[in-house]
């Protein structure tokens, strides 16, 4: 082991290809689970606001489970547990289609949906009830009042926690390494095993994660600023 030398990794085309593959898989997992989470979160929200106690209790249970069980354990339950209970044809299909990444997306997405739906719910709850009444008085139906009056305000209120949780989701994509998904952390560990340049490759991996997280945070700050009408008129 010689001194600090980043070029030993950065000039090796094999390592660069592994890193790029890792970054792509990290984004596939992060974006895939984000989309799954957001879709589910909106469904959960609709169920929560709909009349009937069963739907409400279901959502409360769903949120409670996914917030109180460690994400890693949820992933393990999916990959090591539920995977084995599936019918043969489905497990064969999954195994030949990168099952690790699929289960990472499912596990992270379902978990994150609980957080997203709570963020949206508290955002909506902080919109004054008068807004709904006023919208209805102006001739909006329930759905159209939701769409044009309540949701825009609710989402704006919910933006800061949504962005924080999106960053967490991106960071949590690294948990995929435990179930064998070939994302960035996996690539970092592989390269470490091949090159023995632990310090250099960890530094590269850390800086990559930091760069993308800060990028998401900056994008979020920009969105928050854009969504705030007071800030817009000031500009």
């Amino acid at each position: 082991m010689t001194g600090f030398d980043l070029s030993a990794i950065l000039t090796n085309p094999e390592f660069i290809a592994m890193l790029l593959h890792g970054i792509v898989m990290t984004f596939v997992i992060a974006i895939g689970s984000w989309l799954l989470a957001m879709t589910l979160a909106i469904l959960l929200l609709a169920l929560r606001f709909s009349p009937g106690r069963f739907g409400n209790a279901f959502v409360a249970g769903y949120v409670s489970y996914h917030r109180n069980v460690p994400t890693l354990v949820q992933l393990m339950l999916w990959y090591f547990g539920i995977f084995t209970l599936l019918p043969d044809w489905l497990s064969y299909w999954l195994a030949s289609h990168n099952a690790e990444a699929i289960f990472a997306i499912i596990g992270l997405g379902l978990c994150q949906a609980a957080y997203f739906s709570e963020d949206l719910r508290s955002g909506l709850r902080s919109v004054s009830p008068g807004q709904m009444e006023a919208a209805r008085a102006l001739g909006h139906g329930y759905l159209s009042a939701m769409r044009f009056v309540l949701m825009p305000q609710g989402v704006r209120n919910a933006l800061p926690p949504l962005i924080n949780h999106s960053v967490s989701l991106f960071k949590n994509s690294s948990l995929g390494v435990v179930i064998g998904a070939s994302e960035l952390t996996h690539a970092v560990k592989e390269i470490e095993n091949l090159s023995f340049r632990t310090f250099e490759i960890y530094l590269i991996g850390t800086l990559l994660y930091l760069f993308f997280s800060l990028l998401i945070m900056a994008g979020g700050a920009y969105l928050t600023m854009r969504a705030d009408p007071a800030a817009r008129t000031r500009a």
Partner: peptide, 11 residues
């Protein structure tokens, strides 16, 4: 805030 805990553990 920006680096996964897993990465810090490896460090």
């Amino acid at each position: 805030r920006g680096v996964p805990l897993l990465m810090l553990i490896l460090w």
